[in-house]
Design a protein around this nucleic acid. Structure first.
Lengths: 152, 152
DNA sequence: ATACATTTACGAAAATTTTTCTAAATGAAA
DNA sequence: TTTCATTTAGAAAAATTTTCGTAAATGTAT
């Protein structure tokens, strides 16, 4: 769908805080409450807004240890790819899994409590996946920027 | 703060859909609307819930090209690190930036429209940052899993 | 076990927000 | 310009959030 500048501002606001009331948004964007309401509904219907989610503080949940795992498969047939992806998706520690170009086949973002838990994840879950060739892990030393919001 | 099993279920729900009404949540968790309300407020006050955000469909926004950039700095003094991080944070194409262990110093998640735009980003923004040594880019071929929700 | 303090839960009422409806305004196409 | 479709606005209705008073449950110390 086509977006005008008001839609864009609206989306920027909702990406920052989707629990704002239509009244608050109408004040910021100089529109009536109903106009805001209708625009949001339209953005939802078009699935441009995919989801409204709560973001949690991983530190407080004892999930402050983030690891990026670069993975090579042993083979690259359709069958192997499909099977690996299905299994990787099931792992709760894996928040993100991308098939990527370059030296490695996959890049995973893994979240666990600490190094001990990562060791367990590595041994019991990751390396026991089918078709895994090699893995190379990078630990997050510092989260410099981490946003879900894109610029419009 | 300490979480019981109800809090955990509540957080799982809110990570999936934070716009559910307290009435809907009260039905799912077998609690009164007020109990749900008080528990959510407590989770917000403790900052365990950091933010409520709308997630957008990047494809529809012409931001369907994702690249992971591995970056080495020329030097690793505090000054260089601070300066690089400040500049990287400012770049709108960079959604995530992590200081990581291993062969490279930083891992960036970059979102742009297509290869042409990535080329421009690379030439005009990334490689013109101060203190950049080398970069190695991995293109996302397929988004296998990409969630903001952690398991509790 | 008893007493006390704290937390948690509930239902009703109040305040606010969402949603619907109708009419006016705006814009595009014939 | 006229017509048709879309967008906006304001008011009313419906639904939800928030507050409040009170009761039940839980935990702690004596």
């Amino acid at each position: 769908m086509k977006l005008d500048s008001i839609d864009k501002k609206l989306l920027e606001e909702l990406q920052r805080d989707c629990k704002q009331t239509n009244k608050e948004l109408s004040a910021k964007l100089n529109l009536s409450v109903t106009a805001i309401y209708e625009r949001i509904k339209k953005l939802e219907r078009s699935h441009l807004i995919k989801q409204y989610v709560a973001l949690l503080d991983k530190k407080q949940l004892d999930l402050g240890f983030m690891v990026f795992c670069h993975i090579k498969l042993t083979q690259h047939s359709e069958k192997h790819i499909v099977e690996f992806e299905a299994e990787a998706t099931k792992l709760q520690e894996v928040l993100e899994c991308f098939h990527v170009s370059g030296e490695y086949d996959y890049l995973l973002k893994v979240v666990v409590k600490d190094m001990q838990h990562f060791r367990e994840f590595m041994m019991n879950k990751l390396t026991s996946l089918q078709h895994i060739g090699s893995t190379q892990s990078s630990f997050s030393i510092n989260e410099v920027k981490n946003t879900t919001a894109v610029s419009l």
